[in-house]
């Protein structure tokens, strides 16, 4: 690629929308061309100036309330979603059943449990998205609005039977804005709220019940991205309308912060 070709594609490249083969060719050119590199740097600086300094107009509370009132009643949207996906629990009653029937039932439940185990993450993902949506919907994002990890962490004491790790990632652009109690997977969990640019991230944390670390997996649901991993004995779910790449960066920062004692 020569300078003319590179410059025609520079904006597309900077937007992260250039296909891989051409991106590679373009980067090869950049490595040896100071002029084009300077242009790219300037272009990126302008982009990030817009992203940082252009005002983002949030909907006024009055409009939110007016819409809520104008739309036909949907008042119990705050009801817990936990009644979905109940898992079969009691096997005690089985003993009262006669042999053949009991065997058939046990088989059915066994299959069902297998199914639940496979579907477990999917059902959880639904709950996590529902939790995220509820938090944005009811103007009930944070029970304890604070950017100070030393305020947020103690707030959970006495409300949860575990102490959630709370990290300040403002340096990396992920600003802690508060904490909240939520209910996921039939238990109380900690919800930590972060903001990255205009985007809200809900981070749900609860004890994993084992020390096995699990790598992260990404899911997409209803226009939101979810990232799920297990580390340091805790289950982590991050959900946001942020793109998957930046959500992964968020995860990396959290893992780093977790690895270094604060």
């Amino acid at each position: 690629m020569n300078c003319t070709e590179v410059r025609a594609l520079l904006a597309v490249y900077g937007d992260g929308e250039l296909d891989l083969p051409r991106a590679v060719a373009l980067e090869q050119h950049l490595a040896g061309c100071a002029d084009c590199t300077a242009l790219l740097r300037e272009q990126n600086a302008l982009r990030s100036a817009i992203r940082t300094h252009a005002p983002y107009h949030r909907a006024p509370e009055a409009l939110r309330a007016r819409l809520h009132a104008a739309l036909p009643a949907a008042t119990d949207s705050d009801a817990p979603v936990a009644q979905r996906a109940r898992r079969p629990r009691s096997t005690a009653t089985l003993r009262r059943w006669s042999g053949a029937l009991a065997a058939a039932l046990a088989l059915a439940i066994g299959i069902n449990l297998l199914y639940v185990a496979q579907r477990g993450d999917d059902a959880l993902a639904d709950e996590v998205v529902a939790g995220h949506v509820r938090s944005l919907q009811a103007a009930h994002l944070a029970d304890v609005p604070s950017t100070d990890q030393h305020t947020v962490k103690p707030w959970f004491a006495g409300k949860l039977d575990f102490s959630p790790p709370v990290h300040d990632l403002a340096d990396a652009g992920f600003v802690l804005t508060g904490g909240r109690l939520d209910y996921i997977d039939h238990r109380n969990v900690a919800a930590l709220i972060y903001r990255h640019r205009q985007h809200v991230i809900n981070l749900f944390v609860w004890p994993a019940g084992s020390d096995t670390d699990r790598g992260s997996s990404v899911k997409a649901r209803e226009g939101y991205n979810l990232l799920h991993w297990t580390a340091e004995g805790d289950v982590w779910w991050a959900v946001s309308d942020l793109n998957a790449e930046e959500l992964r960066e968020f995860e990396q920062r959290l893992r780093q912060a977790g690895a270094t004692p604060s």
């Binding site: 909907a59 739309l71 949907a74």
Partner: peptide, 25 residues
């Protein structure tokens, strides 16, 4: 109007109100 529809709509639409307002603004 089916109350479930209203509820589903609220659940879908409410979180995007900021984006909607920002664009309109």
């Amino acid at each position: 109007i089916d109350p479930n529809t209203a509820q589903r709509f609220q659940a879908m639409a409410a979180p995007h109100l900021d984006a909607a307002y920002n664009l309109a603004r």
